[in-house]
Simulated scan of single mutants.
Amino acid sequence: MSTLLTINVKNLGSSSTSMYFFQKPAIYKGGPIVYTNSLFHELIGSFEETSSILTFKINMQFYAGIQQANTSPKVGECSGYSTASRKIDLKPAKGDAKDFTTAQVDPLGLAVPTKGSGVEPGAFRIKTPIYSPPNRYNVGSAVSANGGIVLSNFVEAYPNTYTDCLPILKFYVQTGTYTPGTVMDFDQSSVDAAECDFTGGHSIIDVTRKNNGTWDTEIIA
């Protein structure tokens, strides 16, 4: 059974605040431009007035994703429309894993993963098929968050190529209204955001938005 990563957020401000969640972009081999989507968004009331706590849960199962797109990604806009995702393993430091999947575009989908060759430890690989313009696709790392699967971060795909993706288990909470699947500027949004680092094997982190606009984070488990 996959582990659930949990972020509990408390708002100590004097009024309700919109907050959104996003993930640190994965490392993509070859250094392409990497785009980030919002994963979840919710309005949370003042704790003093409502006693409410916003809980965000991420399934630690890794997913490969492919998405149809009309244009290049733009901040503030939806990254694409039809999306396919597939559970996939990461290449271990030793041994083999089902870390390689082949995409198809008509219909859109991802094949059952198999053992890849030459995949770096901690990564998975997606092969895109041959296709012609004006078709456009995004490929990358998807996550199951609060019950829905969202393409978390991605690169623009090219025909008949391999994309190697190494996900990073760091998530962020920021004030704002990016709805799930909306492209955001990671560098800008992560400034003064609450960072929740699960890379050390933790599973629960509490986040508090203080009245002065700063954040406190506490590892619970």
Rank of each mutant, 00 (worst) to 15 (best):
T3Q: 12
I7F: 01
K10H: 06
K10A: 06
S15V: 13
S15Y: 13
P25D: 03
A26K: 05
K29V: 15
Y35C: 05
H41G: 02
I44V: 15
G45H: 08
S52G: 06
T55H: 02
K57T: 14
M60F: 14
Q61T: 14
Q61W: 04
A64C: 08
Q67C: 11
A69Y: 00
N70Q: 13
T71H: 11
K74I: 15
S79N: 09
G80Y: 01
Y81E: 04
S85H: 12
R86D: 03
D89S: 15
L90S: 01
K91Q: 15
F100S: 07
T102D: 12
A103P: 11
V105Q: 10
L108D: 00
L108I: 13
G109S: 05
L110F: 08
T114I: 15
S117P: 03
G118R: 04
V119W: 07
E120I: 11
F124M: 05
F124D: 00
I126C: 02
K127M: 08
P133K: 10
P133G: 06
P133Q: 04
N135D: 14
V143Q: 11
S152C: 00
Y158R: 14
P159D: 10
N160V: 06
N160G: 04
N160P: 06
T163K: 07
P167W: 08
F171N: 00
T175C: 05
G176P: 05
T179F: 10
G181K: 01
V183T: 06
V183S: 01
D185T: 06
D185S: 09
S189V: 10
S189N: 11
S190P: 06
S190K: 15
S190A: 12
D197F: 04
T199C: 00
G201E: 07
I204L: 11
I205Q: 06
I205K: 07
D206L: 09
D206S: 10
R209A: 04
N211V: 15
I219H: 02
